[in-house]
Design a protein around this nucleic acid. Structure first.
Lengths: 132, 132
DNA sequence: ATAGGGCTTCCAGTCGCTGGAAGGTCAAGG
DNA sequence: CCTTGACCTTCCAGCGACTGGAAGCCCTAT
């Protein structure tokens, strides 16, 4: 199967698939004309990548997950630990964004927001008010 | 004032400050020995950048904010609109992460997480269960 | 005189793609 | 048989916002 078809089935752009090959995540065989030839197994791998990437795993984590996927004797504990660690990471990121949001949201509240030049937001950014 | 001192006062690494100069955000004068020489005004600008960056504005937005900061006749409406738009962006990002988190958090719940090789998380990533 | 720290420039790398150029291949239509 | 257009190939460059490192100058203290 050509890269375009594989791309459709894996829901990934061809460019990305070629990139994944470049960094050693998938290694399709080649047809006589030099075109990449994807097997169902390759596509399976690509879908695995698509899904784990979309869940926020980095490329290196995906590499690790794939090796666990290939390893018939893996311990499910390893995988579970990775998933839980990732959930923790996302939680931390959410909390960070939340506090960012709260800080940022206070700024416009003191700003009359009309054509006048004095602007409490700018003042705050410039540190002309008490602020972190 | 040398870059090291400016860096301390602005709470930014020297490398970052040089980078900001390279992209035209701050242009300190130079001492006779070729060292960058930061005025209080420069440091003020750097702090402005530090704060707006840490609030999640991109470099280009910071550039815009700085030009509003320099413009004594700016309309506060412009600034307010940027701040509100940014809050919306952050809200969207939080929501996205939240749904990501929810999806990801369901995976470990079905995984016994011991030394056995069968792992529902891997199965899910591989698409061997019904999943998006 | 020398040792150290800070400063300078420039180049390369990060992460995960994405865009574009230049050219080969293939299937369908005239 | 020829052309058109879609698809494929490779390679190189760029995104954002820095960060690390090398090579070398400058300044101060001992």
């Amino acid at each position: 199967m050509n890269i375009g078809t594989a791309a459709e089935q894996a829901n990934l752009p061809p460019k990305t698939i070629r990139y994944y090959e470049e960094i050693g995540l998938v290694t399709p065989s080649r047809a006589d004309n030099g075109y990449r030839d994807y097997s169902d197994k390759d596509v399976h791998r690509l879908r695995f990548l698509q899904r784990s990437r979309s869940l926020g795993f980095t490329i290196d984590e995906c590499r690790h997950l794939l090796s666990l996927y290939d390893d018939k004797h893996r311990a499910s504990a390893d995988v579970k630990a990775m998933a839980l660690e990732k959930v923790g990471e996302i939680d931390r990121k959410i909390a960070e964004l939340q506090s960012l949001r709260d800080t940022l949201a206070t700024l416009p509240r003191h700003c009359h927001g009309d054509g006048r030049p004095d602007c409490p937001i700018i003042d705050d950014l410039a540190g002309e008010r008490a602020s972190a």
